[in-house]
Design a protein around this nucleic acid. Structure first.
Length: 990
RNA sequence: GCCCAUGUGGCGAAAUUGGUAAACGUUGCGGUCUCAGAAGCCGUUGGAGUUAUAUCCUUGAGAGUUCGAGUCUCUCCGUGGGCACCA
């Protein structure tokens, strides 16, 4: 009997489905274990071999934990709202719901083919109304909450209202300190007299989900606002379109209220350092001082934020961001037009332009001055776009001597530079280091920087012009998207006041619309919906939620996916608590992983769930990259008019360079007639040039030099073209298939030893790069178990690695060998019930121990190696004992579940292997007693040596050589060399 | 610029707390089986050196700690990633 993986896999997948083998109950005597994958966005391209990497790893852990006696929750679902489906809908007119459903069906088929142990009865889809009902519900809870700084947690908005009713609002109100300082103070009486609208506006300053005029990342091509993490290098992450800054009313999430807790709680998580570091950077906490400068001849003042109060005496100017609200107020008549010009220019620059000329220094004097609080000197106020409106107070005190940006600005505009910390040479560059002694600094003179900071803050607070303050780089997250395919925000507008829907009215279902584009007046697509008004009267909010809304709480829904009364029952969430192992890509560090922590903390604050972190342990599986292949083709650029130095042929004009290109090809490949006669050259050219590409204004020849030929010749006019990796094996192109694919039957390949060698490049696996390898193909050719083992065998889980099918035969033949342990050549079962030998037991126990240890540290590649070693050893021992094989079948089952089930049945066990428990390890067989007596290997003798105390090599040597066994072996000879490894092994060479 | 990660044969990679570097797989080479191919099976494969044995060298580079360093410390170089006029 052969190992027929196709039959075996089909059989067991059907059985698992039929018997609901992986259904998980919410109650069990067993301890719980929750292993979660980041759910995929179901794209139209289907899964490629990179996607299942993390799923296979998590499936191994899930299956292993079941064997180890845990009640395991291992679900899968789909993040099915999002931009690509909508873009596709715009292009094709198909409803995103339809394409999303089709894509999901394909994803599920592909996943089932690999044999995952997901409990599909718990599947969630973020675009399903029964799911997004609860996303909307959570939004409403966030909307109806505020952050109390005194209790340091989110509370119902009612508790804030009662504070206002009792005390009114002032900047010194303890509960709201650091939250909102632009709001004007009011008394309790004033609060009571406020209109509904006024009250709503005030509360908007505190709600955790709020509507506000804000600077946003606007992407005109996508027609929507994007959050900071959706913008990379000034272009949108999806599609790569330019992003502008725009001020508009915008729904936001007050994630900044949680900045401190998001930062601090990182310490208690078991995540990689780089992951935590990425979040720390993104949150960007900086401890400093806010400081107020009085403006000369004015009642207003400027507040700045600095981390270096110790350099207060080095301030030689103050810079405001162009958007700063004081700019228009303080600018003097004389500078008005210059300032206006500058501000307008700065505002019109896109984010990308601004980034591009980071090095270019621009600025403008306002004509105004502030008074230095300690020296009473006049300090000029400038505006400059190196100061960001959104960070700190949008104004800085410039200390050119000790800040490189201020230094550059000062040098450019010839402003004074005053050294106040000794240690650098400020004539050359600024001295930014926080080391040295203060000079020229009044009461700070002679102090070290550290002490000076303390002293400066003390003095500043004494004068009442500032206080210690913490700033974060993290901004509130834009929450509204001017798009169709997302959760509608459950808000309607009554007399201009945003009102939450009643919870009983959820879900607010996405209305049907005809076109998925914005309206003619520029409103979001939802404005197209007819008959879609709250109580047929009030407008709903037209923006939808961003992609991250649904994914910020999905791990909770898996616990209780069908609950119609609650987002998750107390019962379920108290049992499962947080995720024990979370697997996903590192690219979500500053997006999803921050938002899901934020929502979890919020739900915790409001006593809706018992834990304040979503996932204790996080593993980032590396990306499996694609290996793209290229063919090369000679292009000839056409010219409209004859080139002076060119060669003229009937119909076409070619520059001399390209003529040379073709000639050198002729030489290189030794084809065609080389003849000075222009006519024969024409024939030569005619032979190759077959097609005119109007688009590129070029002639495409049918000549394909191979990779090596292209390199050695290094001629212009050769263009690399992507070729589907299906037609390439080990960089060698299947010529016929290629001709067929490109319909280029005249293609002339310049080969080497009859082989056309393609160029290659490692890059992200993607449909557009033609380098996608589908897991389906691997499953068909080698089987799912081989695919699973091979993906693990490729290398450490967390590392990026290119896909390469070369090694897969090794894994495949391992499974075939494993199979042969059970069947002889004639297909008869050869397993015996005899007792196993000591050697066999040693092999199996050592393997089990190693596998267990390696799974516990998520080192799956070494597990696979260990299985291979084990099979090799058992083959050598010709082992066929049930006692040996049975535990191995169980141990292998997390990795290769199908073959394990089949063999388990062959061994005559009725229950499924997944119901078995992980075999116990007999410690007796783990000790290296083999080496207790001397063994001769290549002239060396190996002794086992174990000492309870640390001995020096000399002592060990003495100890060993004086032992009876050594004496017996040496027979009076003196050892030539003794290599001593304390505590372990001694090699003696005679 | 700042921060994090990482560097081992032709290739993917192993190497618990510092303890015989290169396990396992692949590629290459040689052999066996076969009408033939595929698949198996058996050798061999870091470098230098020797008929062979012996021996020496080798974990990006250089230093240090140690009886002993791929592993720990410092400096430098390369690669990947994050943040970036964030005051």
């Amino acid at each position: 009997m052969e190992y027929k993986f196709t039959d075996i896999e089909k059989k067991w997948q059907a059985i698992w489905k039929e018997r609901h083998t992986y259904r998980t109950e919410n109650h069990s005597e067993k301890p719980k274990y929750y292993v979660l994958d980041m759910f995929p966005y179901p794209s139209g391209a289907g899964l490629h071999v990179g996607h299942p990497l993390g799923y296979i790893a998590s499936d191994i852990v899930a299956r292993y934990k079941r064997l180890a006696g845990f009640n395991v929750l291992h679900p899968m679902g789909f993040d099915s709202f999002g931009l690509p489906a909508e873009q596709y809908a715009i292009q094709t007119g198909q409803h995103p719901e339809k394409t999303t459903k089709e894509n999901i069906a394909r994803y599920i088929d592909q996943m089932n083919m690999i044999g995952f142990s997901f409990d599909w009865e718990r599947e969630v889809r973020t675009s399903d109304p029964s799911y997004y009902k609860w996303t909307q519900w959570i939004f409403l809870q966030i909307f109806k909450s505020w952050y109390n700084c005194k209790t340091n947690k989110a509370e119902p908005i009612d508790s804030l209202i009662s504070v206002f009713e009792r005390e009114g609002f002032s900047t010194s109100l303890e509960q709201t300190k650091n939250i909102e300082e632009s709001l004007k103070p009011f008394s309790a009486e004033q609060w009571k007299d406020f209109s509904e609208k006024e009250k709503s506006d005030v509360l908007m300053h505190f709600r955790l989900a709020y509507l506000d005029e804000a600077w946003v990342n606007w992407c005109p091509q996508l027609g929507t606002v994007l959050a900071n993490d959706e913008v990379k290098d000034g272009v949108s992450e999806r599609g790569g379109f330019p992003v502008e800054r725009k001020r508009m009313p915008q729904w936001s999430m007050r994630i900044t209220s949680y900045a401190d807790r998001l930062l601090h709680d990182l310490d208690k998580l078991d995540w990689t350092e780089s992951m935590k570091e990425a979040q720390r950077n993104w949150i960007g906490r900086s401890q400093g001082t806010s400081l107020i400068f009085k403006i000369q001849n004015s009642i207003s003042d400027v507040e700045v934020f600095t981390t270096r109060p110790d350099t207060i005496f080095g301030v030689t100017f103050v810079t405001l961001a162009p958007e700063h609200e004081l700019v228009s107020q303080i600018t003097t008549e004389e500078y008005k037009s210059a300032v206006d010009t500058y501000v307008t220019a700065a505002k019109n620059r896109s984010e990308r332009e601004r980034m591009a000329d980071v090095k270019k220094i621009t600025g403008q004097f306002t004509g105004a001055y502030v008074i230095h609080p300690f020296t009473n000197e006049k300090i000029p106020v400038w505006i400059g776009d190196y100061v960001l409106a959104g960070y700190g107070t949008g104004a800085v005190m410039a200390v050119p001597a000790h800040d490189s940006r201020d230094y550059a600005f000062a040098k450019h505009f010839e402003l004074p530079i005053k050294e106040v910390v000794s240690g650098g040479d400020i004539s050359k560059e600024s001295y930014d280091a926080k080391e040295g002694k203060c000079v020229n600094s009044g009461f700070l003179n002679g102090l070290d920087v550290k002490d000076a900071v303390k002293k400066a803050i003390e003095e500043i607070e004494k004068l009442g012009i500032g206080k210690g303050k913490v700033n974060y780089r993290l901004r509130d997250a834009a929450f509204g998207r001017q798009r169709y395919w997302g959760e509608p925000i459950p808000i309607y507008y009554k007399d201009g006041i945003p009102m939450p829907l009643d919870e009983s009215e959820l879900p607010l279902v996405l209305p049907e619309i005809e076109k998925f584009l914005p309206t003619e007046t520029g409103e979001p697509p939802l404005a197209r919906a007819t008959d879609w008004k709250y109580k047929s009267k009030y407008d709903y909010e037209y923006t939808t939620m961003p992609g991250w809304a649904g994914s910020s709480w999905y791990f909770l829904r898996y616990m209780d996916p069908k609950n119609e009364k609650e987002f998750v029952s107390k019962d379920a969430v108290n049992y499962w608590k947080n995720v024990d192992l979370y697997l996903g890509g590192a690219e979500h560090a500053t997006g999803h992983l921050l938002y899901v922590r934020f929502w979890t903390k919020f739900l915790f604050d409001r006593d809706l769930i018992p834990m304040d972190e979503p996932a204790q342990k996080l593993i980032n599986q590396g990306m499996i990259q694609g290996r793209s292949n290229f063919v090369y083709r000679v292009y000839v650029v056409l010219h409209d008019t004859p080139q002076e130095d060119g060669v003229v042929f009937p119909e076409v004009y070619i520059s001399y360079n390209y003529y040379q290109t073709l000639l050198s090809y002729e030489k290189a490949i030794g084809v065609g007639n080389i003849n000075d006669d222009i006519k024969s050259k024409y024939i030569f050219l005619q032979g190759f040039i077959i097609q005119k590409e109007i688009e590129y204004n070029a002639l495409i020849s049918n000549l394909y030099p191979n990779y090596r030929g292209k390199c050695t010749l290094s001629i212009d006019g050769i263009t690399p073209l992507r070729v589907d990796v299906k037609y390439v094996e080990n960089d060698i192109l299947d010529l016929d298939k290629f001709r067929e694919w490109k319909h280029d039957y005249n293609a002339q390949f310049i080969c080497e030893d009859g082989q056309y060698i393609c160029g290659s490049e490692i890059e992200k696996m993607s449909k557009s790069k033609w380098n996608v390898v589908s897991p389906d193909d691997i499953c068909i050719q080698y089987g799912a178990d081989t695919l699973r083992l091979y993906e693990m065998f490729l290398g450490p889980l967390e590392q990026h690695k290119p896909w390469n099918t070369n090694g897969i035969t090794g894994v495949y033949s391992f499974l075939k060998r494993f199979w042969r342990l059970f069947f002889d050549e004639n297909g008869n079962m050869r397993v015996s019930n005899d007792a196993a030998s000591e050697a066999e037991l040693k092999v199996v126990n050592r393997t089990l121990k190693k596998i267990k240890d390696d799974i516990d540290r998520y080192s799956f590649n070494t597990c696979v190696s260990q299985f291979m070693i084990c099979v090799n050893e058992l083959m050598e021992l010709k082992s066929n004992k049930r006692e040996v094989l049975e535990p191995l079948v169980i141990a292998l089952s997390p990795f290769a579940p199908h073959i394990s089930e089949e063999l388990w049945e062959v061994l005559g066990n009725k229950e499924s292997v997944t119901k078995a428990s992980f075999p116990a390890i007999n410690e007796k067989y783990l000790t290296d007693t083999d080496f207790a007596y001397p063994v001769q290997i290549n002239g060396k003798v190996r002794f086992n040596f174990t000492a309870s105390v640390q001995l020096s090599p000399a002592e060990v040597e003495k100890e060993i050589l004086s032992s009876d066994e050594a004496k017996k072996w040496l027979e009076g000879k003196t050892p030539k060399k003794v290599i001593v490894v304390p505590k372990r092994i001694v090699n003696i060479v005679v």
